[in-house]
Simulated assay, not measured.
Amino acid sequence: MSDAGEFIDAALQRESSWERAAEWEERLGNGLRYYGASVGAVRGTIRNAGRRYPGLTHDEITGLSSELWAVPVFERRLAAVVLLQSNLRLLDNSDLTRLEGFVRSARLRELVDPLAVDGVGPMIELLDAVERERADAVLGRWAREDDLWLRRAAVLSPLRALKSGGGDWDGFVRRIGDALRRPRETEADQGAVDEAISLVLAEVAKARPDLKLPSSVAEGLVMARAKAGSQ
């Protein structure tokens, strides 16, 4: 393990709480271990690591994120997410492959959502036009994937940009349509994606009520919700 990785892991374990660990294991489960460090402690640990190891390069940041993620401990994986969020300007569209692997293996809202909303989306907004076009194509593929967590991440990723007056509304609408067309085999599959769509639409409606879904997409969403309610 790298020096930075050891520092982060040791700090997270010092912040551990067996009561919180037991609570999170019962609530979140998913085959992960839990130190019981709070979200605030995870964020503080990454800030401290940044001060202790300043000037890390792109490869060092992404390598450290993979090192943290590789051990199935919730707080380590959350720390990997926060690390990437804290270094968005170092990332580019080539890093979407790594992020896709994280999303596929996360399988928890508490990891997938911050990866998408505060990682993938803001990173794409910082890219130049050519790289952003390539990244948008990747998100389009995610929306068509069988993996429900990739579909959820594709839908959630533009949330911050859309709320703030930017973002690609047409691209978001296309991804909704693609995600809704995927066959849904389970209620959880149905709910995880439709919940994400509803969340983005509700948040955007508060800030930008002028943005409306095309009728065909809106009707598809209504049908999906009705099907979910009948299961």
Results as ranks from 00 to 15, higher is better:
K212F: 06
A196P: 02
L213T: 13
V193W: 01
S164Q: 14
E219G: 14
L150V: 11
Q190I: 01
A154G: 09
F172Q: 06
R174W: 07
R181W: 00
S157N: 09
L199A: 09
G177H: 02
A218M: 04
P183D: 03
A188C: 00
E187M: 09
R184P: 00
E185I: 12
K206C: 12
S216I: 01
S157T: 11
A202S: 05
L213F: 06
V173Y: 01
E187T: 05
D210S: 12
L150Y: 14
P214T: 12
G166A: 15
P209V: 08
G166V: 12
E185D: 11
P214V: 07
L211G: 13
A196L: 03
G171N: 07
A153Q: 11
G171V: 03
W149I: 11
W149F: 10
I197W: 00
R152Y: 04
D194V: 13
R160M: 13
R174C: 03
D210C: 03
S164L: 11
L199E: 07
V204A: 13
R182Y: 00
Q190W: 07
V200N: 11
R151Y: 07
S157E: 11
K163G: 05
D189T: 04
A153S: 14
P209G: 15
D178G: 01
I197Q: 04
R175G: 07
E195Q: 10
I197A: 05
R160T: 04
E187H: 09
R152K: 15
E185Q: 15
R151I: 08
L180E: 09
S198A: 14
A196Y: 02
A202P: 01
R182V: 14
L201T: 02
P209N: 12
A207I: 09
S157P: 08
